[in-house]
Design a protein around this nucleic acid. Structure first.
Lengths: 127, 127
DNA sequence: CTGTATCCGCTTGGATACTG
DNA sequence: CAGTATCCAAGCGGATACAG
């Protein structure tokens, strides 16, 4: 089934620069977004706790990435006006739905990482 | 169930900088890799055809990304020694297995893009 | 046709210092 | 504690020219 243009959403749109997949990948393709979603999978966490959990993330990038996720409606931010202030982050309902496709990707990664690494080494030996 | 450290692979490793998910996302998170995999989903294609199909890709990036995929063993490259030379690219067996998790992500994108866009607009109005 | 090589701007992201 | 502001280096990726 090949139509000349405007194919089904699943096969046609990815070719376009403004396709949904492209836009989502632009968002989650950065260094920290996925790690934050995973880190929040089990429940809420406060800023400093996230920073400890996610190895290597800087304060700037953690803040910046959390803002992006909040803007997308995938993460909620709750400020408890105590002293010192306490801020809780958690996945929203929409954010929780993202866990499944990410887990599929993760399973693929775990299943194929060895194969990919082997291929890379073989390639590097001959090029 | 909260363990202090070294959780199960699926829940614990994503926190590490060298976890499989992180490595795979570093690879497919770039601008063109996923689009190429999708463009090759239906079968092989030659270089110039891919360039036409994938809107906006430069010659340099198409070559570079295809080399990366070939190195990972996800795409095969076949040179037909004719004049002018013809080069066919196709997904390998491993490459084809990547379509499923990508499709899951794409379905999520399509299903939630409107919701995400609305959230962004609401956020931008209040910040 | 299918690349390779070079230059170069822009973005990403880390380090550091400072604030409510 | 949870940020904000600034500076800066590395690298991604586009444009262009050239080659087998």
């Amino acid at each position: 089934m090949v139509t000349t243009r405007d194919e089904s959403v699943l096969r046609g749109s990815p070719y376009r620069a403004d396709c949904p997949t492209r836009r989502i990948l632009d968002r989650i393709g950065d260094r920290w977004t996925v790690l934050i979603v995973v880190a929040l999978s089990d429940g809420s966490a406060r800023f400093s706790e996230l920073r400890r959990r996610i190895e290597g993330v800087s304060q700037k990038m953690l803040t910046q990435t959390l803002r992006g996720l909040e803007r997308d409606g995938l993460v909620s931010r709750t400020v408890h006006p105590e002293v010192p202030v306490r801020v809780e982050y958690a996945l929203t309902e929409a954010g929780r739905t993202l866990r499944e496709p990410l887990r599929a990707l993760e399973e693929w990664s775990v299943a194929h990482l060895g194969e990919v690494s082997a291929s890379q080494e073989a390639y590097d030996r001959t090029h």
